[in-house]
Amino acid sequence: MAKEIYSTYPMVKYLRKEALPTALCPGCGGGTVLNAFANAVDGLKLDPKDLVVVSGIGCSAWIASPYFLADTLHTTHGRAIAFATGVKVGLPDKKVVVISGDGDLASIGGNHLIHAARRNIDITVILVNNFIYGMTGGQVAPTTPFGAKTTTSPYRNIEHPLNISETVAAAGASYVARWTTAHVYQLIESIKKAIQVKGFSLVEVVSQCPVQFGRRNKMKEPAEMLRWFLKNSVPVSKAKNMSPEELEGKFVIGEFVNRQRPEFTEELNKLIDEVQEQFGLKEV
């Protein structure tokens, strides 16, 4: 049965069949993200041999690890971007993509996220934001909406969520966009753009976790969560004219920045060239 589905799914060529089925729960947004990523790769006609996918720890880290058929580096919690930095410097001609979750990339790994954005290293980060630590049992995340219930904020969350896209844009990324799993086509297009942009690119995907998040917040069904996303999504252009109070609890979607800034590995290699020149080390 499962085998048949895989044989009719056009993106299956990008997957490690021996690793399927994935460990994601039914209704998880991770599948949508994996599908969107595969479609973006397909749309760009990227050879997976030119891809390295890096992830950290957590459900979203498992989206591509090991299911996406490329070189895949599944690392320690929070450190995926730092590992990816080494990979990118070592393989400047390859596309390096990090796919991981909000807790992984923005909580424990927040520092690597902002520093990679500052360096503007040519890595694409697909950050799956489901507001929760799914794998460990539904603990509060730095992205959990104010007032939401989790196992470690049983009396409702008192902290405000980190605006990941806004913070990464402020830190200096070349490309930043946010979509939800209810905006699949925009998401695919955004991932395509992000992969092509020279510099640090972030695509934040607001995604549903019906089991750990929805269940505790009166949205047991994935469809309910998708409806919630659609209802509360506000395009960037519109958000600009809204007050912070009006924006509380909304998902601002769209492209935050798309700009050209000096890229890290390019600058690094340029520097090496200059130094070799300066010391007369270039072969004549």
Binding site: T75, A82, A84, G86, Q276
Partner: peptide, 30 residues
């Protein structure tokens, strides 16, 4: 840089060893 090699100053020691592992998997001695 004279040898065409890479020196990276990372944001902390955790990032440093992480970047090394990444680079080692691309074939570098790190």
């Amino acid at each position: 840089p004279k040898l065409g090699g890479y020196y990276l100053q990372m944001e902390d020691e955790i990032g440093s060893i992480a970047a090394m592992v990444g680079a080692s998997w691309t074939g570098f001695k790190v």
